[in-house]
């Protein structure tokens, strides 16, 4: 018993020392807690459904950020990975009767293959050319899907997938925990040495080559990792909606992902996740106003980016926290001196 109290105290100390010192960390903690505790407040199927879809798209937006935000490989065809994940897991589930636990990871592996197939021709391309080429891939796949209606259901897509579980709460927890875990993994990747190399490639690829690093391999790795996470999002989506249709591959899907990520703040992972959690539910709730939906979306994004070119979340973060000029540790902006090195903050 004493031991338990000791551990609780230790845990509290860590929380107080590491989390409660910065508003951004408190926000992340609250985000986790609210998502996990939400069913205590409401079990409205409509709200649960929206949060599940939001979680799926949060994974998608973060996976775009991992590739394009960090390595600077502008992917305007991210729907490809989402669509490949969705269709592959749907085919495996409906035709081969593989349960979702198997079909979603296998679908993600198919998306990794897609990442390789797209990545290799894109290695030599930069900027606009890269963007246009990536844009073409999901369109090509759509063409193939329409050409093989016996397999893919053509316009109608593949329907009748099984869900992971039929329980409302089961589905809820499955999706939010998957989202929280995958996004944490993606953030950890960007925080590692591999992430540092991704970042450096975006800044100056030639300089990374002269560091003795095989940038080709790292760029392909970024394509594959991004494809993997987006593929999982696609598989989850197909199984949750119980259909994999052509809408998963549409150009508008690719663009929406880019807009989410840039709105939230590219090259942060948490920015795109936050952006999806703000924009997706918002657009769902103005559904009763369908003719203005897209317009509202466009205006919000436009004004945000006009005033916050770095994206919403980095802007907010700069308002509530400031960096110590001496030791570069972040502090609450209300503090006068740094919490670590006690240097003045102004």
């Amino acid at each position: 018993m004493d031991l338990a109290i000791l551990y609780v105290k230790k845990f509290y100390k860590i929380i107080r020392g590491e989390v409660l010192v910065l508003p951004s960390r408190i926000s992340v903690g609250l985000f986790f807690l609210v998502l996990i505790g939400l069913p205590l407040i409401t079990r409205d199927p409509y709200i649960i459904r929206i949060i599940i879809l939001t979680s799926i798209f949060a994974i998608l937006a973060a996976s775009w950020d991992l590739l394009s935000g960090f390595t600077g490989q502008m992917n305007f065809g991210h729907a490809l990975f989402f669509g490949v994940g969705a269709y592959a897991s749907a085919l495996l589930n409906v035709h081969a009767h593989i349960p979702p636990w198997g079909s979603v990871p296998l679908g993600a592996l198919a998306a990794v293959m897609a990442g390789l197939i797209v990545g290799i021709p894109c290695l030599r391309l930069k900027h606009t050319y890269l963007a246009l080429t990536t844009l073409a891939f999901p369109i090509i796949l759509l063409g193939i899907i329409f050409a093989l209606p016996d397999w893919t259901g053509g316009e109608l897509g593949i329907s009748g997938l099984t869900r992971f579980t039929s329980s409302l709460l089961g589905n809820y927890y499955l999706h939010i925990i998957t989202m929280l875990v995958l996004c944490t993994i993606m953030w950890k990747i960007t925080d590692s040495n591999t992430g540092l190399i991704f970042h450096a490639i975006r800044e100056d690829e030639l300089a990374v080559k002269t560091a003795g690093i095989n940038t080709t391999r790292y760029k392909l790795l970024a394509f594959c990792l991004s494809g993997f996470f987006a593929g999982i999002a696609g598989g989850l989506y197909a199984h949750y909606m119980r259909i994999a249709g052509p809408s998963t591959l549409e150009v508008s899907m690719s663009f929406t992902v880019v807009i989410w990520a840039i709105f939230g703040g590219a090259a942060t992972i948490y920015g795109p996740v936050a952006a999806v959690f703000i924009l997706f539910p918002l657009l769902e709730f103005v559904r009763f106003w369908p003719e203005y939906r897209t317009l509202i979306f466009a205006f919000i994004v436009l004004f945000t980016l006009l005033y916050m070119p770095e994206g919403l979340i980095p802007w907010v973060r700069d308002k509530i926290e400031k960096e110590c000029p001496r030791c570069k540790i972040r502090n609450v902006s209300t503090r006068k001196t740094c919490r670590i090195c006690t240097a003045g903050l102004d």
Partner: peptide, 11 residues
Amino acid sequence: ANVMVYCLSPR
């Protein structure tokens, strides 16, 4: 970080 990238080569 500029220098760390150069410390990450296999060599």
